[in-house]
Design a protein around this nucleic acid. Structure first.
Lengths: 127, 127
DNA sequence: CGGAATCCTGTCGGATACTG
DNA sequence: CAGTATCCGACAGGATTCCG
């Protein structure tokens, strides 16, 4: 939970941030790629850095590293380094990360629902 | 889903954005206050603008308005305007918004869990 | 009361070049 | 292979002022 400082927050707000579990969750998954990363990890158990890179078209190495580091900080993702000739790093979900999978699934069905309704609305507005 | 354009995204990415329901969900709830707003609405059914403002210490009127408008665009929140002497505007969850409540609850218990583990880890590191 | 319209600023995402 | 280290620009969030 390193990030999310914003400028000067009063103490009461900081407490709110700390106390409200919802905010904790929000901070943990805030980031353009985190949810998709978690989803890929939930589907594959173990993924190497460059594999993940290929799974996320449009992301750059630097960003992927940062998102992964933050997920690691928040204990969602485990990072295993193998010191072989050409370095090999495997990412996987932690126990805490696996507990998040149901939420991912719920978010997916909910998103599908929303998507359908938006399409319906666009159809209607054509006529 | 107005925002989230970023600069020039290739077509394949745009398609991914549009297709992946997870991303749709992410975009819908991305925003510093949205989750908390949804939570308050889930607890109170109907809340007036200034009430909501008071429930969110640290937010400014402008921001609250924007977050609510975006939630409205994404069909999570309903806005009811009463044209009385002193204007009165009530916010509530839509059907789609209510479908999101289980996710909020899951996020809350998950966040509580994460919080506890972080506290444990801090305790340990003291000795 | 519930905004709209500005303007400002920090953060995050992204691009690029370099490294063990 | 899997990163670091910089630098940059865009955009969300925030403060402030004005309005019906």
């Amino acid at each position: 939970m390193a990030r999310f400082s914003y400028q000067d927050e009063s103490i009461t707000e900081e407490i709110q941030q700390e106390i409200c579990p919802l905010t904790v969750t929000q901070n943990a998954i805030a980031g353009r790629w985190k949810i998709v990363i978690l989803w890929h990890l939930s589907q594959n158990n173990i993924i190497r850095f460059n594999e993940l890179l290929r799974m996320l078209p449009g992301i750059s190495k630097g960003i992927l590293t940062r998102q992964l580091r933050e997920l690691e900080e928040d204990n969602l993702v485990h990072r295993e380094v193998y010191k072989v000739v050409l370095p090999k790093v495997e990412y996987s979900l932690t126990e805490q990360g696996r507990k998040f999978i149901p939420i991912l699934e719920a978010m997916q069905t909910w998103g599908k629902d929303l998507l359908n309704k938006k399409i319906e609305m666009n159809e209607k507005s054509k006529y």
